[in-house]
Amino acid sequence: MLLKLDRVGKRYPMGGGHVDALKDVSLEIQAGEFLAFAGPSGSGKTTLLNLVGCLDTPSSGSIQLDGQDLGRMSRGQLGQLRAARIGFVFQSFNLIPVLSALENVEVALRLGGLPADLDRCEQALVDVGLKEQLHKRPNQMSGGQQQRVAIARALVKQPALVIADEPTANLDSHNGEAVLDLMRALNEDKGATFLFSTHDSIVLDRVRRTVWLRDGVVQKIEP
C-alpha cells in the first residue's frame, strides 16, 4: 500500500474560533492508482491533497506514505520527502519563466538530490510530446505545452506519487483532454500513481477511482 490515512482531521484557526476542513478521513491508496478527490469548493479536497502531498500536516489522525508516518516528520524532513518521492502538477503550471523547458525539468532532478542528467530530462520531455520545444521558455509555449512541461518535471525523478491540483483548470477542453490522456498513458506505461483534486468532468471521466468529499467528510468512493 502506498498511502494510508487513518481518521485524519485538519483544523484551521479562523477568527476567534476554528474551522474543520477535514474530519475523520480514512482511506487507503495503492501504488499505480489514478484517483481523484472531487467535490464542491470548500469540501476539503485541496486540504486532503496538501496532506498527502506532504505540504501540510494533519491536526489529528495519521497518514502513512510507504509506511512512514508523515505526522511525525519535521518541516525539513517533509521537504526532503517531497523532493525525493513526490511530483507536483499545479493548476497554473508554476514553471520558472527564465528557464527553458529542459531547465525547468532539470530543476526537479537537482532539488531531488539527483544528478542533473540532461538526457533523462530530454527523455521526460519527449515522453510528453515536447521533443521540439526543449529549449523554449514558458512564455513561448501554449498553456497545454506548459502543462506538459510541468508533467515532465513531475515525472522525471520517477516519484512514488504525482499530485495534480486541478491540472485542467487553466486549459481549454481540447488541451485538457490531451493532458489527461497523456497522464493516463504515463500512469499505465510507467506505473506512476496520480492523485487529482478536481471537479472537472474531463478528469473525472478518466480516473479509475473518485473520492467524493463534502464539508470535510468522505461522502462516497466510486467505484
Partner: peptide, 13 residues
Amino acid sequence: VREVGALAAMGMT
C-alpha cells in the same frame, strides 16, 4: 510567490 511555492513544494529548502 507561486514560483517560490512550486520550488518549495519540489523540495527547495
